[in-house]
Structure formats: C-alpha cells, structure tokens
Design a binder for these strands. Structure first.
Length: 497
RNA sequence: GGGCCGUUAGCUCAAUUGGCAGAGCAACUGACUCUUAAUCAGUAGGUUGAAGGUUCGAUUCCUUCACGGCUCACCA
C-alpha cells in the first residue's frame, strides 16, 4: 500500500479490500427513507432540542463530496446532485467493523447511511450514523474541491463530472426542461396536436442549409437528415389537422460556433386560418409567459443587459436598417434600397458580405444583418422580408417582392422565424425553380425541389401561418448563457486523439 | 476555413533573460470522537499535448502536427 502512489491503483486496492472484508463491491440496491431534499424540507425548520428528543432515524444515500476524518470519528458530506447533507460517523456508534468500512471510503464514493437526525454544536443538520453502507466505488478522482473543474474541454467531454461538481450546470438543464414543458402547455392549451415527422428524408427541405447525408442499405437510397420540420407539418395542415407542432432535433451540416451546434432543437408550429400578424401576438404572449415562468420575472438579466419582456419592439426590416445605420456612414435614402447598384455600394460602405448574383432582396438582408442584428437586444419583432430569401412565404398583397414574414430577435440572436405560408402550388413551384436556378449558380444552400410537397399543396392548404423557434437559443437567453454549448448536454466535439 | 491565444501532477495554477520543474487541494503514512476550505507532522506523485530543430543546456526560442478557447466568415 505504501508504494501505491498511483491514484487509480490505490482506489482499486481499496475495492479489493472491500471484497476481502466480505462486502459486495457493487451492491444491487439501497432502500432510503428520504431523498436529501426531503430531509431538508422535513428537518431544516426543526430545533436541536426537538430533534434530540425525537431521535428520528433516517436512511439516506449519495456521493461523498468532502470528508473530515478525525481519528476514531469523522464527518462526511454527501450529495444527491440537488442537496447536500452531513453525516457524523463515530467508531463507538457504528462499531469497529463498520468503522473499518468507513475508513475505506474516498471522496466520490456512493454510500448510504442510517441513524438519527441531530444538529451539531454549529447547528448543522447531520445524520448520526449507526451504520454506513458501501454502494459504489469512485475509481477516478473528482476535481479539486474549491476551484472545481473549469477547463471547458474537459467539462464538455466529461459532462458527468461537470454535473457532479458544478451545481449551476444542472440548474441550466432543469430550466431548459421547464422551458420545453411550458411550450407544450401553452400549445396544448390552444388545441395544438403534437406530432412526429421523419428525420430521414429523401429531400431535405424547409430551410436554406446544407444537410447531413446518409444511406439506407436495404432500399439502397441516399437519405438526408432533416434540416427543418416545416414541409411535413404543412402536409398535415393539408391533411386536415388545423393546429400542429413538433418539438424535436434537426441537423445542419454547417459551422460550429458559440451560437451553432450541428444538431439542435427546434419547435415548429402551424396554425390554419391565420396569418403572420396572428403569430406575432401569439409569440409575444408565449415567450413572455415562458420567461416569467422560468426566471420568475418579465425582466431577465442577460450578460450586461436586462431584457424587458414588458416592452417589445416591432419594426420592418427596412426600418431597422435605417434605424441602426451607423452614424459614421452616409445614411441611404429609401430609393437606394431598391436598386442593385446602390445596394452594392451601401453593402461595401458597411462591409456587408454579398455575392454578385445577389438580387436586391439578398442585399437588403445582408445590410440588415450587418447593421442591425447584433443591436437588437430587447425582444424585437422584425417583419416584412424580401421574397428572394423566403421561398416558402406568402407575398404581401401589394408588393410581390416582399413576404409576410417576421423574425424575433433577443440579445442580438435570431430566436424565431415565422410567416404566412405560401399555399399556391403554382407559385410555390415557380419559387422552387428559382431556387434550383440559384443552386445551378453555386448556391449550395438553395432550396431543393419537392414535387410531393407541390402535390400536397395542390390538394388545397388553408391559409396558414407557421413559426419556428430555436429552443437552444431561447434557453441561452433565459439562463444567461453566452455559448450554445452551455445549454446542450453533449455538444458535438472532435473525437479525442 | 482565416486570425489571435492556450495545452505543466488527478484538479486549479506558478516557474525571472534559455540554467536543478514547484505550490495549494486531492492521494498515501501517522496523530486527533462536534468538524465543515478541519488541524498538525511526514511521504509520494511529471515523457511540461506530440514529433522534429536551434543550443553546452529548452516548460521557455523555431517548425510541423493534435486538441481546445476566443473571434471573423457561413448559418439558426
């Protein structure tokens, strides 16, 4: 033992010692009387003398987070991930054999204990153990107790360790779950039907993005992982389900950043007999309610800002370009935003990226993203988008170049995207053909043709409004997280070695 | 993909101008029956991310590679 300086070897030695003393190294179960949370709610308000008098015996279990041995006695803190509780183990209370077991315990071990609840001299609620139980051995040491685990790579690769030692991480994912639950409650209250549509698709449509490809062996066909939920959900609108939603994972074969993960969670919902104005109201109500339920307030701290969900803004994309145009650059006039030549000049003046094949719509969108997007901190609905960048949206009745579409921005991030759905199959076919032409010009993200979707529209789709909400980004906003990886338990990383 | 930065003990971090690789916690041994960052005494723990190069000598300087972070581009 003296020569065993390697830590895992020492732990394995202790595991063999457990076996030698007749303990099952991996016992099957442990009957506990209280979770640590139940201990807290039951006994936190009780006085030392009251506990002393009643001597209520409990059985508890959890992972050892710290130990303070003192010769023939010792204190141990256990945690169940939510709560901590102190155990006091005395040789004269548990007996010499059980005390030998206690001496084989390490930080990180999973143990059980039973005994009466009491308060120490410093008033700490504590179990005075009459017996301790070994439940599982920790063979790899936990991070240091007060600096903890901070290395981001290790935290992500070993999320289980991150969860053990960083309580804030668990709190984020509890909130994420709460957000999803509130969304379901909100939509279910409004008679939406939750459905599941194919992840494997022969045509990856519904968004402008590059898909992952895979192959089905038995059918010998290439398939794509879906990049959006949209086209199947609208087929269900055609099929007579007037309110429908799906909340699930989609996949985009694109870059990874603090705001992008290759797989992410999207809510899409579609509501027949409505237009995008109706969804603006619905979105504002839903997001505000979720923010309040999840954070406890309609004023939410995010980084250096306080997001005020009592004060939503609305403006058109064009208005946003004018409003946030940088003072240092000569402000354009309205007519400049209709002309390709002057739009290119404007794009250059603010360093907005564009391609020579871009029409006025794409150029406007690029201007908007460059000058306005990251200034949209407070909840802001930006509406009326160029038809050129929106192949599935219905145009405005008085303007064939503009569609009835809005996006919700919070904290400089696009959170939601919604529009009045194009339900004219002839026009939809023409839009797809325009996208195919763009694809031929080298635009890899242009929308593919989907003949069956055209056929579905040809059976007649009622006027419909639809919306997608990025759950990961919404969770970032409501948990004050600056990276999408803080709200995804196991984000994609390059494999080790 | 571009730019910048990082990688030293299980964890968190030092190491002066290129000159013997260190500390705290964790671990091990011993003392200690109300501690809580327990305390006290002692011990052990390293291919400094990998491979080359320069040098009498490299954690330190150079090159390449791996992985990561930030950021820009693309995207939601």
């Amino acid at each position: 033992m003296e020569n065993q300086t390697n830590l895992p070897e020492q732990r394995h030695f202790k595991l063999s010692e457990l076996k030698r003393l007749g303990y099952d190294p991996y016992p099957r179960k442990f009957d506990y009387s209280h979770t640590l949370g139940q201990i807290r709610t039951t006994f936190d308000g009780r006085s030392a003398s009251d506990l002393e008098e009643k001597k209520e015996v409990v059985r508890v279990c959890g992972r050892i987070m710290s130990m303070r041995p003192q010769g023939k006695a010792g204190f141990v803190d256990i945690s169940d991930g939510n709560n901590r509780l102190q155990l006091y183990i005395r040789r004269d209370k548990v007996g010499p054999e059980n005390f030998e077991l206690f001496r084989l315990f390490d930080i990180g071990d999973i143990i059980g204990a039973e005994g009466p609840i009491f308060r120490t001299r410093t008033s700490e609620l504590t179990v005075a153990a009459v017996c301790v139980h070994h439940l599982a051995k920790n063979l790899l040491p936990l991070p240091e107790k007060w600096h903890g685990l901070t290395d981001i790579e290790t935290r992500l690769r070993r999320r289980y360790v991150d969860l053990i030692v960083n309580p804030d991480v668990r709190a984020v994912f509890v909130k994420r779950n709460r957000i999803i639950r509130e969304i379901r409650n909100f939509l279910d209250e409004r008679d939406y039907l939750e459905v599941e549509t194919p992840v494997l698709q022969t045509v990856a449509g519904g968004a402008l993005a590059r898909p992952f490809q895979t192959h089905h062996n038995a059918l010998d066909i290439n398939l794509y992982l879906r990049i959006a939920l949209e086209l199947y959900l609208k087929r269900l609108i055609v099929g007579g389900i007037p309110r429908v939603y799906e909340l699930s994972r989609i996949f985009r074969n694109e870059g990874i950043s603090t705001h992008h993960n290759p797989e992410f969670t999207m809510l899409e919902f579609y509501q027949a007999y409505s237009d995008y104005k109706d969804l603006m109201e619905l979105t504002q109500e839903m997001i505000t309610r979720i923010a309040e339920k999840v954070t406890g307030s309609r004023q939410v701290k995010y980084r250096d800002h306080v997001l005020d969900f009592d004060n939503w803004q609305r403006m058109t994309m064009i208005e946003a370009i004018f409003r946030f145009w940088p003072d240092s650059v000569t402000k354009p006039e309205e007519k400049d935003l209709a002309d390709v030549e002057s739009l290119r000049a404007l794009a250059k003046s603010v360093h907005a990226p564009f391609e020579l094949s871009d029409g006025p719509g794409k150029l406007c969108a690029s201007l908007f993203e460059t000058v306005a997007e990251d200034r949209l901190i407070q909840p802001t609905i930006i509406y009326d988008y160029p038809a050129e960048t929106s192949p599935l949206s219905k145009t405005k009745p008085d303007d064939p170049d503009t569609v009835e579409r809005f996006e919700l921005y919070i904290a400089g991030m696009e959170i939601a995207n919604a529009y009045s759905e194009l339900n004219d199959p002839a026009e939809q076919k023409a839009r797809f053909e325009a996208q195919l032409a763009a694809r031929d010009r080298g635009d890899e993200e242009a929308h593919a043709m989907d003949e069956d979707y055209i056929r579905a529209l040809s059976y007649g789709m009622p006027p419909t409004a639809g919306e997608g909400i990025g759950i990961d980004r919404l969770t970032m906003v409501l948990t004050d997280s600056s990276s999408i990886r803080d709200v995804i338990l196991f984000p994609l990383l390059r494999p080790e070695q």
